[in-house]
Amino acid sequence: MTLFWQHFRAQLTGLLIWLASGIVLALALTRTARAAAGGGMGLFQSLPVSIQRLMGLRPGMSALDGYVAGKIAPSVVLLLVLYAVVLALSAITREVDRRTIDFLLSLPVGRRQVLLSRGAVLFVNTGLMAAILWGVSIWDLQNQGLITGATGRYWLLFLGQWLLALAVGSLTLLFSLWIDDYSLGIKLFLGLLSALYFIEMVLKVVGADRWVRLLSPFSYADPATILAEGRLPAGDAVVLVAVIALALAASLTAFDRKQITA
């Protein structure tokens, strides 16, 4: 637990900054929901089909669901995934880059313990971030009277996006073990994610097959599907959980073998 709290404390300022930015973004989006959704589906339906596809809309969606799936969810997931990448790079790469790994590994701790504590912080912090951002969004939509019934479908978005952020974070943690330069890691992974986000948008616009889109993490836990079907797609959930488990297991082995040079 000492290792977990020490790393959690190290990440606390970052978490608060990301949360503050996320809450401002979420509230900005929910505050404009009434105006966007107020005219029924008119606003969205008036858009070209390719843009509707780009926004992940489905025929027959309610105005509010369309707004949540097309505007709020893509913004929140992008923020969550970026945060997960930064957090994963802070786990080992930043410690190596700043040489604090020497202090840490000079103590009688196992490398697996260190990595698991980092994984636990990734799990908790992305969970907190996702829960608070979706909590704030749902609360504000309820406050405005836009959501009147059960909120379970919206909380499924939180679950799906948390899993997605965890999967991306776990993969980043794994591959970051071969990168000792923190700023290089940030550039590399954020660049890669931006490219995948862009590719996903293009594939949506052109109406590419789902299996092609599955190459990008952003096509998993699709908000429109979750809201329309009222459940997290089982296939997506299985893939995301498997990626998290495999990436963490591989990270444990890779970190165990890592040579910590001066």
Partner: peptide, 21 residues
């Protein structure tokens, strides 16, 4: 190695501590 580190004190050549603490 873990047992060794329990009994050993180490000062690296360029020591880095957690600067937020």
């Amino acid at each position: 190695s873990r047992e060794v580190r329990q009994q050993v004190g180490y000062l690296p050549s360029d020591p880095a501590l957690y600067d937020f603490l």
